[in-house]
């Protein structure tokens, strides 16, 4: 157990070291010259990028979690295949294709990008919410019922806390994927860090391209870390059994 954790930490450390080394190398070959010359651009585009992710992910969480909860309720159980299939399509259709499709109806711009990103983010959250709640041990629900909890109390005190781990995992996956996908928003005129990446590609300028790509990577890592901290706060301590948490 101990050695396993040690190896894990060594691997983690090595990966960070490699990423750092690449950054250093890129810096000395002058790849970041564009960033140094135009810090204002970068800041503006990062802000736009965050706005895209923030709004679309927040909307996705606000729709997918309640929807997932709804289809696990006995009354709506029979509709869960419709909802899951709908979300499945949202995930299976390539993000670029969604952009193209949505664009032909909503036109270019910010709302279109947010809509496409929202649609693309639904499935991981929805599927994990449904799976998390469905997989709560039926014995403890039975115990709650037998003790005289109302169905509302069973949901909030038993089902939801015990499904939290799966729900949070879905949110994390979805948001991190969203950080990368949001780079495509530039293609329909919604800005974001994709602006630099695609400009760099068309101009064949590694410097401009990297100044878009590197911040996207850093954003993904930082957001994932923040979400893991939120996860720690939200998941009941009794459910964390890995030594990492204790």
């Amino acid at each position: 157990m101990m050695t396993e954790r040690k190896t894990e930490q060594i691997v983690k450390f090595a990966l960070y070291a490699i990423i750092l080394a690449i950054f250093v190398w890129a810096y000395f070959t002058g790849a970041f010259q564009f960033i140094l010359d135009h810090p204002g651009d970068l800041l503006y585009l990062t802000g736009q990028h965050l706005e895209l992710i923030g709004i679309s992910s927040a909307l996705a969480i606000c729709t997918a979690v309640p929807l997932g909860i709804l289809v696990t309720r006995p009354k709506f159980k029979k509709f869960d295949w419709i909802v899951l299939n709908f979300a499945n399509i949202g995930q299976t259709v390539p993000s670029l294709a969604i952009l193209a499709l949505v664009m032909s109806y909503f036109g270019l711009g910010f709302q279109t990008a947010v809509f496409a990103l929202w649609f693309n983010s639904l499935l991981p959250i929805l599927r994990n919410t449904v799976a998390g709640i469905d997989n709560v041990n039926p014995l403890i629900i039975e115990a709650g019922k037998g003790m005289g909890m109302t169905s509302k109390q069973i949901f909030f005190k038993v089902e939801l806390p015990n499904a939290m781990y799966a729900i949070m995992a879905g949110i994390r996956t979805s948001v991190v994927i969203n950080v990368g996908t949001a780079a495509l928003a530039f293609l329909i005129g919604a800005g974001g860090l994709g602006d630099l990446i695609f400009t760099g590609i068309s101009l064949f300028d590694t410097g401009i391209m990297l100044s878009g790509a590197v911040p996207v990577i850093i954003l993904a890592i930082v957001i994932d870390k923040i979400l893991s901290l939120i996860e720690k706060a939200l998941i009941p301590r009794g459910l964390r059994r890995t030594p990492e948490y204790s």
């Binding site: 041990n137 014995l139 403890i140 039975e142 115990a143 709650g144 019922k145 037998g146 003790m147 005289g148 909890m149 109302t150 005190k157 038993v158 806390p161 015990n162 009941p236 009794g238 459910l239």
Partner: peptide, 22 residues
């Protein structure tokens, strides 16, 4: 039903303790 269940103790085989609670 709710009142009835609260007035009757109920124990099941695999104890059914809530893992999220102390």
């Amino acid at each position: 039903a709710i009142e009835l269940r609260r007035s009757i103790g109920y124990v099941i085989q695999h104890n059914g303790l809530f893992p999220n609670m102390t």
